[in-house]
Simulated assay, not measured.
Amino acid sequence: MNYRFKPVASPRTSPAPEVGCCAGHAHDHGEHDGHGDHQDHAHHPGGHSHGHGHGHGHHHHAPASYDRAFAIGLVLNVGFVLVEALYGWQIDSLALLADAGHNLSDVAGLLLAWGAFLAARLAPSPRLTYGWRRASILAALVNAVLLLVAMGALMVEAIQRFQQPAAVSGWTVIVVALVGVVVNGITAVLFMKGSEDDLNLRGAFLHMAADALVSLGVAGAGALYLHFGWPWLDPLVSLLIALVIVAGTWGLLRQSLHLSFDGVPEGLDVQRIHDWLLSRPGVQEVHDLHVWALGTSDTALSAHLVMPGGHPGDDFLRSLATELKARHRIGHPTIQIEIEGIADSCTPSLKPAGH
């Protein structure tokens, strides 16, 4: 969605400019009905003019149906926290009470991810021209930090229990832990498909899958304790599970932090994009190329194309936008066309393939 400013009356000319510096913006936003293609040519001092071609058709990987998934996940997890805390208080189990507190962080993580998911759908404004899409990146980052902190606390508790092993609280702990496996497992499945394309949903998925694994470990340790009577099994299993979860969460933390600083989204090769743009008919040089994430499922690109033959027209820009979306999953391309090339100071060091 693009914020549309109210136009100010200005003189127009009809044909595309033959000389001067031309700027063309190619956008692909097909889901916005009623947005037609247009080309504006406004005169500027010194005889320079700019041409803008827009074709609209945004692609979002995370549909609105995930609202239901978030709602179901929250209801299940709030209910489980209440049940676990109640049984922990009744049998005086510190393990269950501590795990109930940990599962409360799941509720916070889901609320955070859902809030960012909703914020990303808010309309852009004159002050926030891209809207709130970056909220999904920040939510993924905070979710990763929360999960790492929770696992750190679990490892500290496991180490302390090695020094003072405590008896596992029998069948009650096992049954409650298995309920946790079911609740967290169901919630994780709700976000499994969306986690493939959206980093925010991936954070929610990892958070719930991690807790399902923790609960499974608690149940398994309880069963082994009942059979062998080894009190050190509980802290050992907890420590191993925490280490596995930290290893899996580290990638989420690294990727969300990378995107927070406008890093190139994972799976995109800037050099390959540069070479592809350079291979377009009439393009002599590509510079000032930037690729960054608007949100966890939206990617933007800006580039200057030096085309000595003149402005190529809207059909060229529309085709470029379509190809960028199909080849590189880039839904927000902004292309500036130049006749002779304009020097810039922020271009990454890129050379054509074979040089």
Rank of each mutant, 00 (worst) to 15 (best):
P352R: 09
P17C: 06
G222K: 02
A120F: 09
N184G: 01
L146I: 14
R318S: 11
D106V: 09
A166D: 12
Q90T: 05
W250C: 02
H227K: 04
P7G: 04
F162V: 15
I159W: 09
G73A: 12
Q39G: 12
G220H: 00
E285M: 06
L141A: 05
G34F: 04
V8L: 09
C21K: 02
L233K: 00
L301T: 14
P312N: 07
R68P: 08
S345A: 11
H207M: 09
T334V: 15
G203P: 04
V78S: 04
D262T: 13
W292N: 14
E266N: 08
F117L: 04
E340F: 03
G310T: 05
H52E: 13
F70W: 04
L206G: 06
H56D: 13
L141N: 05
D262R: 14
Y130I: 05
G229I: 12
I330W: 11
V168S: 14
R254F: 08
R68Y: 08
L190C: 06
D106T: 14
V107H: 00
S169Y: 03
D40H: 13
G203K: 04
A212G: 15
Q164C: 02
A177V: 00
G115A: 06
A247G: 14
H41V: 11
L96W: 02
D106F: 00
S65E: 07
V78M: 06
G282F: 12
Q90M: 10
G203H: 03
